[in-house]
């Protein structure tokens, strides 16, 4: 009896030791990555937050004096901040759905078996790897009212000439076009991978049941793709919300601030105006707003996954 108890105790001790060793080895692998993440992600964020509540001294290039919410008050009192927020919302509301619809639509259309499909897919990568500044410059030439190809083509059918960068609405349209040109391929590639991974047997069963093209798309493909669409939307949202390079290269935020997205405004305030504290305050505001909206999108995405 005593032996049995001892054996049990020994086994329990040994289990605990094994568990502890297991935990230790797991953490031993995780700690370097965790420390690295803290250093490269958390530290800059906390430093930005510190600057946003401080007076930034250019002589030492550091935060020197706690000023509370003063920088935030300056930012919230600046009409340019609110204008930039509005511009960003307009850009996101049009660009994101357009890229998702186009991306999945094109992916669906090129999903059929045909020669050269892989070459076309590879070509789709090109806009993504073009540097934003180059893309901006390139599109400035293409959309130039005088010498641009787009206005030439429009002129052939009796339209235009359109002042793409001089009219506030057209400048925003130009920004959305350029961003869509750059990032729709990303959506296409993601959607193509998702389409290829769809279970064939479900489609075969539907065909046997006499389902037509539209029924298969509406009742099988789209519901199965919903989680992927939602995830792609979140990924693109996170990319789009920080966009500023294309606006910097193509429209300079103009005309008259019509395309001055919030990150371009933050960049200009920091690096042109050297107002690092106010810029940090804006960056923190955007960080919080982005985190809240991303959490909402992720929650929505989970609900959709559960539903389908």
């Amino acid at each position: 009896m005593v032996d049995e108890r001892l054996t049990r105790a020994s086994a329990s001790h040994s289990r605990f030791a094994r568990k502890f060793a297991d935990l230790l080895s797991r953490w031993a692998f995780m700690v370097p990555a965790a420390v690295l993440l803290l250093a490269v992600l958390a530290y800059p964020i906390f430093y930005t937050i510190e600057i946003s509540f401080s007076r930034f001294d250019l002589a030492t290039f550091s935060a020197v004096e706690w000023v509370g919410w003063e920088n935030y008050a300056h930012v919230l009192d600046d009409y340019r901040f609110w204008e930039s927020m509005k511009v960003t919302v307009v850009y996101l509301v049009f660009a994101l759905p357009l890229q998702i619809v186009l991306g999945f639509g094109i992916a669906f259309l090129i999903n059929a078996e045909w020669r050269g499909r892989n070459v076309v897919r590879a070509l789709f990568i090109i806009p993504m790897v073009v540097a934003p500044v180059v893309a901006g410059g390139l599109w400035r030439m293409i959309l130039d009212p005088l010498w641009g190809m787009v206005n030439y083509v429009l002129g052939l059918v009796g339209l235009g000439p359109l002042d793409w960068f001089g009219d506030p609405t057209l400048a925003m349209a130009a920004l959305i076009i350029i961003d869509t040109w750059r990032w729709t391929p990303f959506v296409i590639l993601t959607a193509t991978a998702a389409l290829l991974a769809l279970p064939r047997d479900v489609f075969e069963a539907a065909e046997i049941d006499g389902a037509n093209w539209w029924s298969k798309l509406w009742s099988i493909t789209l519901p199965l793709l919903v989680p992927i669409i939602a995830a792609t939307f979140v990924v693109r949202w996170l990319g789009a919300v920080k966009m500023f390079d294309i606006a910097l290269a193509a429209t300079y935020g103009g005309p008259g601030g019509a395309t001055n997205v919030i990150n371009l405004f933050i960049y200009e305030e920091a690096f042109r105006s050297l107002r690092f504290a106010e810029s940090a305050a804006m960056a923190v505001i955007i960080l919080v707003v982005t985190m809240v909206l991303t959490a909402l999108f992720l929650r929505g995405s989970r609900l959709l996954e559960e539903r389908y």
């Binding site: 400035r140 130039d144 009212p145 005088l146 000439p161 002042d163 793409w164 960068f165 001089g166 400048a171 429209t251 300079y252 103009g254 005309p255």
Partner: peptide, 9 residues
């Protein structure tokens, strides 16, 4: 100025 000059620098 030429068309599109509002975007000219």
């Amino acid at each position: 100025a030429p068309p599109g000059a509002l975007a000219h620098g």
